[in-house]
């Protein structure tokens, strides 16, 4: 039986292990993260151990094991963004939201990630908020964007320590 939390299309024709990554991707797309329940379900489906699934999933930076925030904030630290002040943007996020990469605000409003490259290098430095990429960011403009986000969503300061440690222990 499908778990109620896992939408039905997670079915495969055979136990081919090459289904694993696409399955994980589909689950993350639908639920925002890879829950313990979904890992158990995949293990049954593909007849592989949960251990193996965590082994594969934790190798790839795309997969998260904690519920994400409502809003997603990404600061690009690709080379072009690095030389155009991406580090300062990351520091500003830490200062404004008390968040480090991989953390979510305690009220679950915003999750934050530093990423390797979003591929908009000619527009560096870039920041992605909820899937929209913003070009030629400065600390000044970032603060304004964060304030806009905050107006829609009241924020608490302080990072969620548990979100990081959970990944490490997974």
């Amino acid at each position: 039986m499908d778990h109620p939390n896992v939408p039905p299309p997670i079915q495969v024709d055979d136990c081919d292990p090459s289904h694993l990554i696409p399955l994980l991707q589909r689950i993350q797309q639908q639920e925002g993260y890879i829950s313990e329940q979904s890992v158990r379900q995949i293990a049954r489906l593909l007849k592989i151990s949960e251990n193996h699934i965590y082994g594969v999933a934790s190798f790839y930076s795309q997969f998260h094991f904690q519920k994400p925030g409502k809003h997603h904030l990404k600061v690009c630290l690709g080379t072009a963004c690095h030389v155009q002040g991406g580090v300062q943007l990351a520091q500003e996020v830490e200062k404004q939201l008390s968040l480090r990469s991989g953390e979510t605000t305690t009220d679950g409003a915003i999750d934050y990630e530093e990423v390797a490259c979003l591929g908009c290098c000619a527009q560096a430095a870039v920041v992605e908020i909820d899937g929209v990429i913003y070009a030629k960011m400065t600390t000044d403009r970032l603060v304004k964007k964060l304030n806009e986000l905050r107006l829609h969503e009241p924020l608490c300061s302080g990072a969620d320590e548990s979100s990081l440690s959970a990944l490490a222990s997974a």
């Binding site: 081919d16 292990p17 090459s18 289904h19 694993l20 990554i21 994980l24 991707q25 082994g55 594969v56 190798f59 790839y60 930076s61 795309q62 997969f63 390797a116």
Partner: peptide, 21 residues
Amino acid sequence: AGAFVCGEETALIASLEGERG
């Protein structure tokens, strides 16, 4: 799924097969 090393051809194949890249 977000792993730089998967640009290496044998790692890419491992990833396609559902393994760590």
